[in-house]
Nucleic acid binder design. Sequence first.
DNA 1: CCTCCTCGTGGAATCGATTACAAAGAGGAT
DNA 2: ATCCTCTTTGTAATCGATTCCACGAGGAGG
Lengths: 337, 337
Amino acid sequence: MASIKDVASRAGVSVATVSRVLNDHPAVRPDTRTRVLEAVAELGYRPNAVARSLRTDQTRTLGLVISDVLNPFFTELARSVEDEARALGYSVIIGNADERPEQQDHHIRTLLDRRIDGLLVSPTDGGSPLILDAVRSGTPMVFVDRWIPGIGNDVPVVRTDGCDAVRDLVAHLHGLDHRRLAIIAGPAATTTGRERVRAFREALAAFGLPLPDEYIGQGDFQADSGRRAMARFLDLPVPPDAVFAADNLMALGAMDEIRARGLRVPDDIALAAFDDIPWFLHTDPPITAIAQPTGELGRAAVRSLIDRVEGRPAPSVTVSARLVVRRSCGASEGSPR
Amino acid sequence: MASIKDVASRAGVSVATVSRVLNDHPAVRPDTRTRVLEAVAELGYRPNAVARSLRTDQTRTLGLVISDVLNPFFTELARSVEDEARALGYSVIIGNADERPEQQDHHIRTLLDRRIDGLLVSPTDGGSPLILDAVRSGTPMVFVDRWIPGIGNDVPVVRTDGCDAVRDLVAHLHGLDHRRLAIIAGPAATTTGRERVRAFREALAAFGLPLPDEYIGQGDFQADSGRRAMARFLDLPVPPDAVFAADNLMALGAMDEIRARGLRVPDDIALAAFDDIPWFLHTDPPITAIAQPTGELGRAAVRSLIDRVEGRPAPSVTVSARLVVRRSCGASEGSPR
DNA sequence: CCTCCTCGTGGAATCGATTACAAAGAGGAT
DNA sequence: ATCCTCTTTGTAATCGATTCCACGAGGAGG
């Protein structure tokens, strides 16, 4: 592949001049500029980003480590992140942790080795030593969706606050005469895992409803765990009459289990989920869900990170989720307010 | 961040020696090696991959340009590609073309600028000049899923052959007394867009069934186009009694339209799709689909590409799809053969 | 004791860019 | 003609690694 030297000799100038033309440095005579650009075109020259990065100490690349690519929420997030980054002149390298801390660490390590300019992380755990290292190493970092408490001062957090939406959901369920409400929680090591339970518990309290321990199923954000949690609920002497799954995959698993037992949603049991995804429109029945503004989340995270990368102060951002009512809790379609 | 020089001076050796230790060069005295490794550990040193790439002219990175991240088929493909690549010591940079040729070109260009070692492409079009350039530039390349005819000699193709499965599907539909079969096709610019129509047409012919032009809907692999195509079918004086969508998103759109008109699957019209995805189990009704061995496809593509990258001959690979019968065509669940 | 090898190590070139600094040339002021 | 300034260009250092080559020490063989 042609290098800057080839261009220089073809245009009859030095490499410095070629570099200046390429970087729009003003001190180049117009006719020199044209000669260089001609040489560039003739050779089909493209600057070597590796060499450039080495010299300038910036890669114009961001890293994004997400918890699970197969979860539509995260792929939509990844998509919006990439879109916004591209618009701002950055590329994105995506690492999929698959909800496994060691795989997350692997990705963080290789991204750091590649000297990405900034790192967007949705941590799968409570904070591995490597993440703390990464923060200290000085690479700009922003948490998105999930975060790790305790390093909030150094690392902005871009997330969704679902409290109001969870309250709306509980109100919706209550209004449909559901009184025995249960939740399938995410891993306690993640903030989203804990917070959604907390919000749910508080909302229940506001309606004077209890949340007994056996109505808290422990899941791991994967479909199978939702299925198992639902099985345990249904095996209880007094099963819940409504179940809230803390993410879309667990809701899917829960629905499997319900169907496998010949029960029906919402007649036999109501079901709702955190995270709205296009497929929820097409399930049987369509699923009531709490929708995060995923695109907005991703774009805000990128802007925040790039602010940091370029030396500006980076804001933490919190956006709000909203309830999308469908038929899985017994109501007819239509959204509140 | 610490560089190799810092390690060298801390260990009291030259940078050459440090480099030898890091690369497992045998000609290093054991005690020197330990001293160096200690210095590495104390400084938390990690080699700069950018500098290394510049010198060695290899990045140990592969590029993957897919047509649409929001399509579960492609995210599963991306996942398996990344898994296999990681196992073989490579990273993957994913570019999402969003079915737009210019965005595809953007990604190919930046990947090439980054001097990735090899490129995996599922082209959105019939071959932009840039792709041809990329091939000529000598960067190892492999097509996955879709390909571009005419440059097959230089570029291996790893794909699924769905002919048998399509024939099984047609037999299945025929067995359920469907006689007016229609297809929602993908873009004619893509190989998968054309091939699935061809396979369908041939299978129909084998059963003595016609495929009139008005039974060929033109889609673009996105949900909306599926919806429009289905609308046109349903507006025909004699609508089809079974529709085969050439990908999962168009099937989804088609189902929307059917539902919006108050019709039911499979009672009023049968529906089947190319590409099986987990969600098809949960739609109403579960959708009969042709399943590609997506993981296998991705892994084979990576192995083929890496063969090429490392100078071995790279095979083209064709795997077979199979029919997964569910309820959307009228049969009860269970798979043929 | 001298020569020749082998082993371990360091010096320096190199990859392809950017950029500080120097220098050459043009043009204007005196 | 001389000096100064400004514009345009080239030379060379630099980023952080890898790797060729040379060199010194030590052992083997004569």
